[in-house]
Amino acid sequence: MKKNTKILLLFIVIGGLVGGSIGLYLWFKPVPGIESLETQLTVPANDLFLAYEADENAANEKYLNKVVEVTGLVREVKTNEAGFPVVVLETDDMMFGVICEFESKNPLPRDVQVGALITIKGLCNGKLLDVVLNRCLFIN
């Protein structure tokens, strides 16, 4: 075999291995944790809710699939059926607010109590009855 052919073959093999590994890495890559994602928008819970009440499409344009940091008073703390902590933040609406499902099943810090003012980082998934955030993290 000519030297050139050998080098070419070697490149193809190495290229294949590198490409394949990158492919496999991408394929098996788990969903990244929220702490590794940069906050894109910061908004008070009530403003976020009002934006959705006023114009859902416009609010989706702005907030949907964005990493948001939401600040508000805790209205309700519970654990959902799947075992993840859930916090509902106050809004001017009597019934509905901003509902945040935490990414980890770990217990929430003690500061997270009804009436406390807290900031939560999470992904905005749009509005159902409440504005819905998931994969949330307690900031302070």
Binding site: W27, K29, V31, L64, E101, N125, L128, V132, N134
Partner: peptide, 12 residues
């Protein structure tokens, strides 16, 4: 149901 609230294991 919010479609974006579906969580998978694999990011891709």
């Amino acid at each position: 149901i919010a479609i974006k609230s579906f969580v998978f294991k694999k990011a891709l």
